[in-house]
Simulated assay, not measured.
Amino acid sequence: MKLFTVGPTQMRKEVMEVGGELVPYFRTKEFSNVMLDSDRLLKKFMHAEENAKSIYLTASGTAAMEAVIMNCLTSDDKVLIIDGGTFGHRFVQLCDIHEVPYERVVLSADEQLMEKHLRPFENVGITALLVNIDETSTGQLYDTQLLSDFCKKTSAYFIVDAISSYLIDPFNMEKYGIDATIVSSQKGLCIAPGLSVVVLSNKLIKDRVENNQIHNLYFNFNEYLKNFQRGQTPFTPCVGICMEMNKALHLIDEQGEENFLNHIDMVAKDFREKVKELPVSIPAFPLSNAVTPVIFDKPIAKKVFEILKDDYDIYVNPTGGEREQYVLRVAHIGDTTIEDNSMLIDYMKKAIKKATEDLE
């Protein structure tokens, strides 16, 4: 099996070996030290401010998104949501459920986020901006500086879902004044699904988390902040995945963050050059290094996905909704190489030929 998927990803052998070990008992000083060590490296690669604090949730990325809204926003807020795809729209759904008032920047699948989209919201009392910085459903990597400038101009909290961008694209929490960063284990960390992390600025903790009274036991951030002072969580964590995280972070540290990101960038650029050999196109807007949307002229995308999976044991990401038959997404994260790109292109040629013949 070979994964060219955004998550789970093609995991490194060293991490899989950790995943095969006996899961240790966790209410110990030794496990606390592992978590504190991981937290140091995770925030180092996030370029978080010195007094930023982390929340470790045994939950999916969507749960972490919801937890941020519950702990950091209220019905007195007025937030701006970048609604440019499936995951941006998830923030809309969550704000509806939790009765947080919002405005939206709605983007079509091929529309680039620009300053003109934000300008109408500069003087309407926006208190927070919510964005999936890499809208994985379309592949667009939004301009972090543009969004940061808007938040500074409007004194709005900057809340970023970086699940498909952290440890994939350059990311700097302190430089851009990001108040909350949401990440999940199965993306850039390239470990098993099941762990999500929220890193909070001291300002957001003091202004909101410590003062919001939420009616929820499991997702109450104050309990997590108190417990993590000793490297623990208030409820049972996904211990095995936490051990994988520590190994993965140390592998990145040994390689060097810049070298690690440069490899992903190189693999992404190589694929985007090689894909020109196929009868497909890719979007013109800025793309995250996480994924390349591959656009077909004919309605064969789902069939190509199935042929790659069933005939060659190769997995790429299908696309849901109205673009299901026309778009596949190929990820460049995990243990993948330029040689893997060449192999994938060869099999995609065969799959496209067969899918086209079947269509006719």
Rank of each mutant, 00 (worst) to 15 (best):
I159F: 09
D161M: 11
D161K: 15
A162T: 07
A162H: 04
A162P: 07
A162N: 09
S164I: 13
S164V: 07
S165R: 03
I168A: 02
P170S: 11
P170K: 05
F171S: 00
N172G: 04
N172Q: 03
M173L: 01
E174D: 15
E174S: 04
K175Y: 06
G177W: 00
I178E: 01
I178D: 01
A180K: 02
A180M: 01
T181A: 15
I182A: 06
V183C: 15
S184P: 13
S185I: 03
S185T: 07
S185K: 04
Q186E: 15
K187I: 06
G188K: 02
I191A: 08
A192F: 15
P193A: 05
G194I: 05
G194M: 08
L195C: 11
L195D: 02
S196Q: 12
S196R: 04
S196L: 14
V198H: 07
V198C: 08
V199N: 09
S201C: 01
S201K: 03
K203H: 03
K203F: 00
I205G: 00
K206Y: 00
D207V: 07
V209K: 00
V209A: 00
E210W: 06
E210M: 15
E210G: 02
N211V: 02
N211H: 12
N211C: 11
N212P: 03
Q213T: 13
I214W: 02
H215V: 10
N216Q: 05
N216F: 00
N216Y: 02
N216G: 04
N220T: 11
N222L: 10
E223R: 12
N227I: 01
N227C: 10
N227K: 12
Q229A: 07
Q229V: 08
Q229R: 15
Q232R: 14
T233I: 09
F235P: 00
F235Q: 04
F235K: 02
T236P: 08
T236F: 13
P237F: 12
P237Y: 09
C238Q: 08
V239R: 02
V239C: 13
G240T: 03
G240D: 07
I241K: 05
I241E: 03
I241H: 13
M243Y: 09
E244K: 06
A248N: 14
L249S: 06
L249Y: 03
H250L: 10
L251H: 06
D253S: 11
E254A: 14
Q255L: 09
G256W: 06
E257C: 12
E257H: 08
E258Q: 13
E258T: 15
F260G: 01
N262R: 09
H263E: 08
I264A: 03
I264G: 03
D265Q: 14
D265A: 14
D265E: 14
M266G: 02
K269G: 12
D270G: 00
F271L: 13
F271W: 08
R272I: 12
K274T: 00
K274A: 05
K276D: 12
L278N: 00
L278D: 00
L278T: 01
P279Q: 04
V280W: 01
V280S: 04
S281Y: 09
S281H: 10
I282Y: 05
I282W: 10
I282S: 05
I282K: 12
P283A: 09
P283H: 14
A284C: 14
F285A: 10
P286Y: 06
L287N: 10
L287S: 05
S288H: 09
S288R: 07
A290I: 01
A290G: 15
V291M: 12
V291W: 15
T292H: 14
T292W: 07
P293Q: 04
V294I: 15
V294K: 04
D297N: 10
